[in-house]
Amino acid sequence: MFQLFKKSKPVKIRSYDGNKKYGVAAKDLKELLKKGCKSLQLPLPGAHVCLYSDGTKVTEEFFVTLPDHTELVLLSREQTWGGVVCDIGQLLNTDRHADGLIEAAKGLLSDEQSPKRRKILTDLLLNLEDRSELESREEDEEWFKGIDARFKTKSAYMKFNCESRIRGYMKEVDDASKTIQKAKVRAEFLKTSKSLVEMLKTARYNGCYFDRTEKEPDRLCTQEGWFTCQGSFDQDVCQSLHSINPYGSRESRIVFSTWNLDHRIEKKRTIIPALLEALQNHNTSDVNLTYFYGLLFTRENLKLVHIVCHKKGAHNLLCDTKKIFRQAGKTEKGSQKAKGRKRRLV
């Protein structure tokens, strides 16, 4: 009989407290332990191997089934391994300075292939690189890259960012005037638009929503700059618990630009058409502009949502017909009609 020769299996191996991987080829677990202990300078008695991904102990039978280049951890007798998060926890328990932790985390991430581990390390890096306590351009120049030089603080830029979004909503209202055929209705709509702009100027375009230096009832973030997703239009809270601090890093600031101030009652599908309809047979003075202002530009109808929670389908929510017109105006008209009837009776 011919003796069957086992083919060597290439794997990647590292020690419990080491980030560097070593390529080892072995025919069986016994040979792997022998070569691994020699490379990592560990005592062979009691040595054992676990999967790097989830900490599963590798037996002789299990070793045969491993795919080539599987990542393993070689452990001494007293050591245990809990999976990919183990070395991250060990990293955080060290006394390294923040910059040292960042470099170490980048080292772990540099050649990592595991999606789960890459996600954990990426999130860790974002937190380690957090510089939210810094406010001025001089303190954190990296955060301000690509931002106009007139902005000297993070809060000033974030306020401008929010104002720009609100101005964009106002532009959509103005653009709706182009669809109006009747000159009288268009004239009333332009009056309405002008009044809304004046209301926005008084409120400084509600830039306070993104400004962490504002008072708590006015801002949407914590004093440190953390924003929490408020969930899709049809939910009370975000089921995924999304949160972000755009004050922390340039990357977080850029990612935050994908978050939406979403209208629960939709702007284009519902609010603007309802305003146009109200002006077909009424003057601007008859319309409850405070109600429409609240729907278009305030937290009364706006929700800050992560892009994943932004549902772009029809919301199927309508304006409150009882609030579209000014009640005082109706009362005044009713009084005039009553006076007219009284004169006729006299």
Rank of each mutant, 00 (worst) to 15 (best):
Y247T: 06
S155R: 12
D28N: 07
T122V: 15
D68E: 06
A338K: 13
W259K: 00
A278M: 06
Y291R: 06
F297K: 01
G107H: 02
T153P: 07
F189I: 10
K159H: 14
T202M: 09
E71P: 01
T321M: 07
R269N: 12
D234F: 02
R299T: 14
I254W: 09
S285G: 05
W226S: 08
T284G: 08
K7G: 03
P246K: 00
V255N: 05
A176G: 10
I254L: 09
K178A: 12
S76Q: 14
I88S: 04
I307R: 02
E138G: 13
V73E: 03
K38C: 11
V185A: 05
K201I: 10
I244Y: 00
P115Y: 15
L134P: 08
T321D: 10
K339A: 07
E141Q: 12
K57V: 15
G46A: 04
S249C: 04
S240P: 08
F63A: 00
L261E: 01
A98C: 13
W81H: 01
L304D: 04
A26R: 02
K38T: 02
E188V: 09
P115L: 11
K27W: 04
E141D: 10
H242T: 06
L101F: 04
L74P: 01
F292E: 09
A25M: 06
E214C: 10
L74I: 13
Q336R: 13
K333Y: 10
K9P: 07
F2C: 04
D286C: 13
W143T: 05
I244W: 00
I102A: 05
V84R: 04
H69R: 12
K333L: 10
W259E: 00
K184I: 12
L72P: 01
E129T: 07
A176K: 05
A105I: 03
Q223Y: 15
L124C: 12
F160S: 10
P45N: 04
K182H: 15
A314Q: 02
D262S: 03
S15R: 02
K38S: 08
S132K: 10
D148Y: 02
S249Y: 00
S110L: 13
L345M: 14
V11F: 02
D320A: 06
E277S: 14
E60F: 11
K178L: 08
Y293S: 08
K339H: 14
L318E: 11
E172K: 08
K119D: 13
S8A: 06
N316D: 11
D68Y: 11
G36K: 03
